[in-house]
Amino acid sequence: MYDPRTPFEKKALEHVNMEISNGDFVTILGRTGSGKSTLLQLMNGVLRPTSGEVFVDGISTSEKKDSLFEIRRKVGLVFQYPEHQFFEENVFREIAFGPKNFGVENDELDKVVMEAIDLVGLSREVLSKSPFNLSGGEKRKVAIASVISCNPEYLVFDEPTSGLDPLSVRLFFDMLGKFRRSGKTIVIVTHSVKEALQNSERVIVISKGQIVFDGGVQEFIKSKNLMEWGMLPPPLYRLAWRVKEQVEKINIKNDKLSEAINRLKDMVN
């Protein structure tokens, strides 16, 4: 709840019960305003629950200050708006800030920063620039780099691919694949159903502050409630559904055309 016991009281989430196991790759979907960002900020203690508790490896985020430090170290959160996490004068210092705080120094620090910018696909030219004087996509990449440079166990990303070009999106998921194989736990919010289908096994849907779906991607894409949740299947899927029934009984004589139609049919079978 935001601003509880004031006239502006706003319930953003309620009755949320969920568990994320180590090594999971979870995609969170939901309409704008459904509570996704709130949920993510609860995960590393940026926000605390008004009632109920959030545990990270058994430690409650509502406990004392020193355990919060430990939690933030374990759970790296990339905010939806990159600007919200920037405060340094240049990109290098921005990305170096986290690891430095956790005791990384000198050459090792340089190495960590360079690795991070390579992973997200930023050029070295941006290192000396102010993080505020970058393009939208470059800002997003700096925000991602400054969290992965801390090497957290749990990586939590709020709409990391919004504003990334298609090439960078691919790079990003390649990177997540590597993290995954090294045993990290990944939680990501996206508006792209396609990304969810291609990259994760488990999907959680939030609607009006509640979890309305928690299950596998196949089950998710077949759900009748997609529209109600603000989701649409990717366009090629929608095309396939529309075309399939209408051409079922037609004997298509044109090879190329029937090839295309079969491709669509395969998609929804």
Partner: peptide, 9 residues
């Protein structure tokens, strides 16, 4: 860029 699919449509 930051809108759910239905609002995007």
């Amino acid at each position: 860029s930051m809108i759910d699919p239905i609002n995007r449509e």
